[in-house]
Amino acid sequence: MRMSLHISADGHLRFYRTFICVIIAGLLVFSVTTAHAAAQRLTLTGSSTVAPLVNEIARRFEAQFPGVRIDVQTGGSSRGINDVRKGVADIGMVSRALKPGEEDLHAHTIALDGIGLIVHARNPVVSLSRRQIVDIFTGRITRWSAVGGDDARITVVNKAEGRSTLELFLEYFQLRNSVIRPHVIIGDNAQGIKTVTGNRNAIGYVSIGAAEYESRRGVPLRLLALGGVAASVDNVRNGNFPLSRPLNLITAGVPQGLARRFITFAQSAQVHDLIEAQYFVPPDAG
């Protein structure tokens, strides 16, 4: 008994020694690879609307150029701008056009995002004026009959605070979120579409790409025209649809080296499928 214990202890020792050697070897290999990757590293920070798309683009870029490591962090458009100005990030992600006072930065549009108002397909209303939309969302109009629809109570579907869709919607209609009287608050586009298709008297707003995709698949919803312009991906692409915005990558100066290669890649036709998969619209080639 005593004998076998000794042997097993010895075996343990040998095992540990091998184990430690393996770990040291692993650490060496790891440090070498990270040192190599550090030379080819790109950091992007900013808008949480743009980040998922950029993440996909970055993964494809990394697959094409091994040895490049791309780090994507969210934190809002304003963080993207701050980080690029301070030099913390190589590229910022901003889900709007640059404002006056931001002329020191360079914007590179990689996609467009349009927001469309959606109702159930069986709702007879096909178009609403700007005034009517504001009145519906602020609770001054509460029945569809007031805008030419059925005699039923309107269910207003709004987005949760912090979502960029909400931000764009509020900005376009010059509203504050506290004056909106919602009946349902949703998170993402899919939930918004499910809510409206499940409620004949609901009205909400989602990314046009997502709504058009679902309605083409036969889901019972309709995009409302806005200011006489049909809410369609085509009208977002050609810039006619008013409730839309560019998704930009921004840099502090004219981009150089790896940053420039990445931006060119993100603007090329190679990533159009990724842009469409996120329900955004690739900008016109011209």
């Binding site: 039923a152 109570r153 269910t155 009946h183 349902v184 939930q191 499910k194 809510t195 499940g198 409620n199 008297n201 609901a202």
Partner: peptide
């Protein structure tokens, strides 16, 4: 709940959710 229950309650008393 989102696709079946809420629409059912909505028929009875909107908004369902």
């Amino acid at each position: 709940g989102l696709t079946t229950l809420a629409p059912l309650i909505n028929e009875w008393h909107p908004p369902g959710a």
